[in-house]
Each structure stands twice: as C-alpha cells, then as structure tokens.
Amino acid sequence: MILYFLTLVLFVMGVYCLIAKKNIIKKIIGLTITDYAINLFIIMIGYRENGIAPILFKNMTMEELTERGVDPLPQALVLTSIVIGLAVLALMTAICLRLYEKYKTFDMSEINRLKG
C-alpha cells in the first residue's frame, strides 16, 4: 500500500510543478513526471507475487505461465501510452517555440500580460 501511495505522491508533485511554476519549460517537465508516475501506477496494479514475464519460451509448461505470469493487460495499455506521451511532448515543444517567436520570452505571466 505504501508503494501505491508513494506513486501518487510523485503524481501530485508533477501536477504541482505544472500549476505553480511560471516557466513554460518547467511546466512541460512537470507534465512528463506526471506521465511517468501514472504509467508506473498502472503496471504496479498488475504485478503478481514471484511473477515472471508473460512470454513463452521453448520447454516451458503452460501451468508455469498461468500460475506465475503477471497480468498482460495493463502492459498492453501502458505500451501505447508511453509513445503517445512522446508525440504530445513534440506538439507542446512546437507550441513553445512559436510562443517564443511571438513574445520573445518563456515567462507565462509576461505572456498573459502581453497577450493581444
């Protein structure tokens, strides 16, 4: 239980960085930390005690896989989520560069003041 709680603490720290910092690059870093924390939480839910990875090798019986294999379903969800995080980060960096070209600063409160 303490493991789940520490993962949620990591998530909360990522969201705090997203809200309370004024530099846009810090906000992007906060979103990345949130991403890592949530992926870790989902995979932790599917872990089985003394588990092995759900991959069959030769000369391995099916009973060993069904009794000791970890849950393959959260792994399928997280596999796509990691690559989506990378694509969204590329989009956010493109927006940041456009903002810098227009307002000449990375400071969010300056951009709020100068908008228009």
Partner: peptide, 8 residues
C-alpha cells in the same frame, strides 16, 4: 524491469 514487463 523488476515488475516483470521487459518490453515496456
């Protein structure tokens, strides 16, 4: 890796 997910 510790949690049994090598391709992740």
């Amino acid at each position: 890796l510790m949690l049994g997910a090598p391709d992740i």
